[in-house]
Every structure is written in C-alpha cells, then in structure tokens.
Simulated scan of single mutants.
Amino acid sequence: MTPPDLLMIEDDADLAALLRADLEAAGYRVRIAPSVIAGLTMARAAFPNLVLLDLGLPDGTGREVLVRLRRSSLTVPILVLTGRDTVEQKVDLLTLGADDYLVKPVHPQELLARIAGHLRHRAAAELRDEVLTYRGLVVRPARHQASYQGQPLQLSPTELRMLTVLLRQPGRVFSRDEMARELWPEGGNTLRSNAVDVHMANLRKKLRAVQLHGLIRTVRQVGYGIRKVQPERLG
C-alpha cells in the first residue's frame, strides 16, 4: 500500500527535518516546501493527502497560502502550525478553511494523532461511498462533493464532515462536545467547542449563499441538528 503523502510548508529547516524524521518513522511520505510559492506549486502538483502549514514564511504568510489553497478548491485537510496561542487567530484560521491547528512547540505524538485522525475520516468516507440527500442537497463524502440543486458547494473537509455527521442522523441534536468528538476523535486542546462554532458558522454561511436556509437548527444551550425531514439515502 502506498504511504500517505504529506506536504509540509515550513521554512525552518531544522524543525522541518525533525518533524519529517518523526513522520517518516510513522510511515508517511513527506515533501517539504520552504516558501509560499513552493508550497502552492507543490500542493497543486503533488496531490498530498494532508497539508501541514506554518504561518511564518519568507515570501509571505501561511494565512495567504491557506486562502489561496481553499480558493483553488483543494479539499485535503490543512493542519496549521502556529506560534500564537490566541483564540482570535485560531478563529481566523478556521474561518479561512483550516481544519485543525497545533501550537508550537509541536509535540510529535500529538501531531501524529491529529494527522491519523484526519486521514482516518477520509479513509472511512471512501469505504462507505455513500450518497446522502436532503431537499435538493446531495452529499458524497467519499468524493468530497456537496451540491444543492446541482450547484456545487465549496466546503472544507471539516465543514463537509460536519454536514455528513448531521445528515446521517437527522432529528438528532449534537452538543458541541459531541460534535467535537465526531470531528476530532483523537482529542486535543480545550478550544474544540469554539472550533465547532466557527466551522458551523462557516458552513451555514455557505448554505445561505445558495439559498439553503434553515437546514441546520440550533437548540439553545444544547447544540445543532438537522430539521426533522428524513433525508433519502441512496447506494
């Protein structure tokens, strides 16, 4: 079996070498891009399974890379490595399309757990190859595709996973902690509930943009769920 391909966009050669050694020892194939230009070029040409993105780069910022990769419809998970442990910055990154973040210094075991969790989600979706439909909304998790009335929705991997979780159990209300465990079963820092809210806000904004209003309901002091119309399952 071909090992998963990871792209690390990181200009610190020493840190990149250390992380690469840990990742390759765990069975991953790792490519390193030391700049914005190299990162964008390799991400579009190498078809990585996951991107590790540093924010401080010599010819620009990781934030710029994140924006451009999502605008180019890259659907793989993007895990940001950041030196700033502030809620504001993390909310900003999640809003722009990051799926996860780790604060430096990065602990190798936590990094490996986060990567494995994201890749597991994608592998599980590919095995199911399911199609979920709901009032003109069509979601194909394995292909990372979502559309409404034939119009494609550009969702990040985490947004699509969140929508899939809700569609699989219509009528059920997920608390923020339950949704966090669905999205990040490998665990992580204490800001996961905040991350759920940010991803949910992004998802709702994209649904509203195609005139799909009111699909996701908020139950005050409980959480989120799909309104009680049973979606049709195909396949």
Rank of each mutant, 00 (worst) to 15 (best):
M1V: 11
M1P: 08
M1D: 11
M1Y: 09
M1T: 11
M1E: 10
P3N: 07
P4C: 08
L6H: 00
L6C: 02
L7V: 11
M8L: 12
M8T: 06
I9Q: 01
E10C: 05
A13E: 04
R20H: 09
D22T: 05
E24S: 03
E24I: 01
A25P: 03
R31I: 01
R31M: 04
I32H: 06
I32F: 02
I32G: 01
A38R: 02
A38F: 00
A38C: 01
L40W: 05
M42N: 01
A43Q: 04
A43T: 02
L50G: 00
L52E: 00
L52Y: 03
L53F: 03
L53C: 03
L57D: 03
P58L: 05
G62C: 05
G62H: 06
E64Y: 07
E64F: 08
L66R: 06
V67I: 13
V67S: 12
V67M: 11
R70T: 15
R70C: 13
R70K: 13
S73H: 13
I78T: 09
L79I: 15
L79G: 10
V80H: 11
R84P: 05
R84Y: 15
Q89Y: 13
K90T: 15
V91A: 15
D92R: 14
L94E: 10
L94A: 12
T95K: 15
D99T: 15
D99R: 06
D100I: 07
D100V: 08
Y101T: 12
L102Y: 09
V103N: 09
V103D: 09
P105Y: 09
H107R: 10
H107T: 08
P108L: 10
L112F: 12
L112H: 14
A113S: 14
R114H: 12
I115S: 03
R122K: 04
R122N: 04
E126F: 00
E126V: 01
L127Y: 05
D129M: 03
E130G: 01
E130F: 01
V131D: 00
V131H: 00
Y134K: 08
Y134P: 02
L137N: 00
L137C: 04
V139M: 02
V139Q: 01
P141N: 08
R143W: 03
R143H: 10
S147M: 10
Y148D: 07
Q151K: 14
T158Y: 03
E159P: 01
M162Q: 09
M162G: 04
V165E: 07
R168G: 12
V173K: 05
R176Y: 11
E178T: 15
M179K: 07
M179T: 09
M179H: 09
A180Y: 14
R181C: 13
R181I: 13
G188Q: 14
N189M: 12
T190F: 13
A195K: 14
V196G: 14
V196P: 06
H199G: 06
A201I: 10
L203N: 11
K205D: 08
K205G: 06
K206D: 02
L207K: 07
R208M: 12
R208E: 15
R208G: 12
V210G: 08
V210P: 02
Q211N: 15
H213E: 14
L215V: 08
I216N: 04
T218R: 07
V219Y: 04
R220M: 03
Q221M: 02
G223Q: 08
Y224K: 06
Y224F: 13
G225W: 10
I226H: 07
K228Y: 07
Q230D: 07
E232A: 10
R233K: 05
R233D: 04
G235D: 14
